[in-house]
């Protein structure tokens, strides 16, 4: 109460109540904040945003895959990673791996609307869509040497090559080796050994 000092009019008892009412909110919030266990900071493994993590995964997928020479027509082409149908990474793909190099090629990120516009990419990221749309996109890419990575866990069942899958708060991935070899790509055994499941169909 002393905080209200000289301004406080003791001749008006109701005013005391009003002041208390006003202050109680502040006091309540203060108490609320101080009760929050600010000191009990638990520091387990650091967390990253889901798509930051996925961007790092894409970087490793690129490192562990071998493209045929025909995938880089003029020799000095950059390595193009495309997202189809919007940018689920919301810019973090560029931020996380945009300045990196993959097997000597600097990475370029492109966002295209349709799979048909992604024929010059080396890697295509396909967001979780209706099943039919996913297989249509995979078909659009045909057997070109493009590594397709899907956000939907059933992506490999629709002809995709690598599918992200979430287990609790960790990311896992499935690999469809059949689709990969059909497109003349080669993935390292390390990638296969870390995959949750490898299918050959």
């Amino acid at each position: 109460m002393f905080r209200f000092g000289l301004h406080f009019d003791l001749r008006r008892p109701l005013a005391v109540w009003r002041v208390w009412q006003r202050m109680s909110i502040w006091i309540g919030v203060l108490g609320w904040l101080s009760l929050t266990p600010l000191r009990a900071v638990t520091v387990d493994a650091p967390g990253y945003d889901e798509y930051q993590l996925k961007a790092a995964f894409l970087f490793h997928f690129a490192q562990l895959t071998t493209w045929p020479a025909s995938a880089f027509p003029s020799g000095d082409e950059s390595f193009v990673i495309c997202t189809v149908n919007g940018d689920p990474f919301d810019g973090s793909l560029e931020k996380t791996i945009g300045s990196k190099k993959v097997q000597g090629h600097s990475i370029k990120v492109a966002h295209v609307q349709r799979a048909a516009e992604a024929h010059s990419c080396q890697m295509v990221f396909i967001p979780a869509l209706q099943r039919g749309e996913m297989s249509a996109m995979v078909n659009d890419l045909g057997n070109l040497p493009i590594l397709t990575v899907g956000d939907d866990e059933s992506f490999t069942q629709y002809g995709g090559m690598i599918a992200f899958r979430r287990e609790n708060d960790r990311l896992r991935f499935d690999v469809n080796l059949g689709a990969i070899t059909k497109s003349n790509l080669n993935v390292s055994s390390m990638l296969l050994s870390l995959a949750r499941a490898v299918s050959t169909r």
């Binding site: 493994a45 967390g47 945003d49 889901e50 993590l53 995964f57 919301d90 973090s92 979430r166 896992r172």
Partner: peptide
């Protein structure tokens, strides 16, 4: 990476 938890905060 496989052992890194996804942070709960969304990008947005």
């Amino acid at each position: 990476l496989l052992n890194t938890p996804i942070s709960t905060a969304s990008r947005f």
